[in-house]
Amino acid sequence: MSRPPFAPFSERDVEIVSAQLGRPARDVIGIPARCVCGAPTVVATRPRLGNGTPFPTLYYLTHPGATASASRLEASGIMAVWQAELGEDDALAAAYAAAHEQYLADRESILSVPEVEGYSAGGMPTRVKCLHALLGHALAAGRGINPIGDRALDQGDWSPEVCTCAPDQRGA
């Protein structure tokens, strides 16, 4: 299981994440999801950065192919459809609320940060706001945890099973 505690990460992992982001990676505590080549796909970030800033996004999508896929899905207007479904489908809404609670529990197991208490990511538990965050959560937590993140994975045009990493950003 990739949720906390996370497996150790390497300096090479941090270098790859930094290259993926185009800036230095901050306060990495794990790599909860990887491409088939081993490159980081999702980074886990400390809930309070070293400079004291609260950082609610525990699971941060970094893989360029995954982020581009999430962006294309967002541009397609699918989030409005899924948002409407949340209001109509009690089972979907309950599963999404449970994903929110699981996200909070994962973050709280690392560090309690009062400023972000009750806030998870991606609009959970009642809105579909950011597919990048929801896809990152789905990849980190595994299938069946975040139903909207699973949909983003299923309906996007990227797969963690097919390496699209730049040659200099491939894992070991």
Score class of each variant (00 low, 15 high):
D157N: 13
R3K: 10
T53K: 15
G52H: 15
A44E: 02
T41H: 00
A80L: 14
L49D: 02
L134K: 05
M79T: 14
A121S: 13
L153N: 05
Y103S: 01
G144V: 10
M1N: 04
R26Y: 06
F6Y: 15
H100L: 03
T53Y: 13
F9M: 10
P54V: 12
H132T: 02
N51G: 09
D27A: 12
Y96G: 00
I29E: 03
C130L: 07
R151W: 02
N51W: 13
E88F: 09
A68K: 14
L111N: 00
Q20F: 07
V17C: 05
T45V: 15
L104F: 02
S18W: 02
G77I: 10
P147T: 05
E115P: 08
G171V: 04
A75T: 11
A133H: 07
R72E: 10
R46E: 05
R143H: 12
L153H: 13
A99H: 01
A94F: 07
R143N: 00
F55M: 04
R170K: 15
P8N: 11
T164R: 12
H132W: 11
C130K: 08
A99T: 00
W158I: 04
G142S: 06
R170W: 04
G122P: 05
G142E: 03
A138M: 06
R107K: 14
I29T: 09
Q169T: 13
Y103H: 11
D90Y: 07
T62H: 04
A75G: 14
E117G: 01
V43H: 01
V128R: 08
V36W: 11
Y59A: 03
H137I: 02
F55V: 00
R170N: 01
D168K: 10
N51T: 13
S159C: 04
S112A: 07
P160N: 03
P32I: 06
A33H: 04
V128M: 09
G123C: 07
Q102I: 08
L111T: 03
R127F: 11
Y103G: 01
A152F: 05
T62A: 09
A97V: 00
V128A: 07
W158G: 02
A172C: 00
S76N: 11
L21V: 04
G144R: 11
P40T: 07
V81S: 08
Q20V: 02
E74C: 02
D89I: 09
T67R: 14
P47Y: 11
S120T: 11
G87M: 09
I29A: 08
A66L: 03
T126P: 00
A75P: 08
A140P: 10
A91V: 15
G136Y: 06
S159Y: 09
S112G: 00
A80Q: 14
A99K: 01
R3F: 10
L104Q: 04
Q20H: 15
L139Q: 00
P64C: 08
D89R: 13
P160W: 12
C37D: 13
L92T: 05
V42L: 03
G87H: 12
A133I: 06
G30Y: 11
T57Q: 14
S109K: 03
L104K: 05
G171K: 06
V14C: 13
S109Q: 09
V14N: 06
A66F: 05
E15M: 14
V116Y: 06
F6I: 07
W158V: 03
P47H: 12
